[in-house]
């Protein structure tokens, strides 16, 4: 698509093309500099972090030692945080995506009372400030004794309204009414139609919602910060931010600066890899939202 292959292979076109690519390259540098900095900082000793230029490697390659420090600092609690983050994100995302699939399908393919109001309510939920939700959640969870448990993070993360919106749009596009009606004529039940006839059609949409919910849970900070209190339950985001705070306060020694950067590197690599591998899905999902909204 776009203006390709029309008048085009003229010198004019080539010049514009080089110019525009150059514009994008400038922003590319800006995008990649912080990521590059994590990589260089993770390979340095603490002395070199302060003593050598930030955006290049130091003479001494200290990555392995930093990794050892990272995974042994405070009795190796970092690996525990990584595990927690994986566990919280995976369970939240699986649950959120299944619930969103069912609800989105209902919104897309059925007429029922209160549909408009309910959907408006789901969309309106986006406007609620985090604090308005997290403070009462904290008090409620403390009453039922779930504070500082994995469930305190997972249960609220199962609510993922954007997923419902995306699934509704996706089902509208991907599942024709004819397929469903054909199923009905064959005498299949409503849920049977959903599970057998359309499940394969729905997989790309499901994968998209799963990825978005997974990233949202992986990035979650405010909720776990509030509802978790002991280090062994923290996800990476909360744990690293606490190490970072003590590094900037000067307590715990300067060792922490390189350890925090190495921790940042280790915790963003899986998500970046997942994004690169599963491009098709998140791009598809964002497009679906874009076309309809």
């Amino acid at each position: 698509m776009g203006i390709v292959g029309n008048t085009t292979r003229s010198p004019n076109f080539r010049r514009n093309r080089i110019l525009l690519t150059a514009v994008l390259c400038i922003y590319l540098v800006y995008t990649l500099v912080p990521l590059f900095y994590v990589v260089t900082a993770s390979t340095k000793t603490n002395a070199d972090l302060f003593g050598t230029f930030g955006l290049w490697f130091a003479g001494e390659f200290n990555l392995w030692q930093n990794l050892v420090d990272l995974f042994t600092h405070q009795n190796g609690v970092f690996s525990r945080w990584l595990g927690n983050t994986f566990f919280y994100s995976l369970t939240s995302a699986v649950g959120a995506a299944i619930f969103a699939l069912l609800a989105g399908y209902a919104f897309a393919k059925y007429e029922f009372r209160g549909k408009k109001l309910l959907f408006a309510l789901v969309l309106g939920a986006v406007m609620i400030p985090q604090t308005a939700l997290v403070i009462p959640l904290y008090l409620m969870l403390s009453k039922i004794g779930l504070l500082n448990t994995p469930l305190a993070v997972i249960l609220p993360s199962l609510v993922f309204p954007p997923g419902v919106f995306l699934m509704r749009v996706y089902v509208d596009e991907a599942v024709s009414n004819e397929i469903i009606d054909a199923g009905r004529v064959d005498g299949a039940g409503e849920l049977h139609i959903l599970s057998s006839l359309t499940f394969r059609l729905l997989m790309p949409g499901f994968a998209t919602v799963f990825i978005l919910a997974f990233v949202a849970a992986w990035n979650n900070y405010f909720l776990p910060l509030v509802v978790l209190s002991t280090s062994e339950n923290f996800p990476v985001t909360v744990g690293l931010s606490i190490w970072y705070a003590s590094a900037t306060l000067g307590s715990g020694g300067n060792l922490l600066f390189t350890v925090v950067m190495t921790g940042a590197l280790v915790s963003i690599l899986p998500v970046i890899l997942a994004f690169l591998i599963m491009q098709r899905f998140w791009q598809g999902g964002l497009s679906a939202g874009a076309v309809k909204a």
Binding site: G2, I3, T31, L32, L35, W218, L240, S241, V260, I272
Partner: peptide, 29 residues
Amino acid sequence: DSGMVYARSFFRVSFFLPYAVPAVIATLL
């Protein structure tokens, strides 16, 4: 979208990468 650049999908994915970095980590960086 105009298609008038080289390495279009490379740019698209690269520009999106920061979104995969948690806000907490981005702020640390």
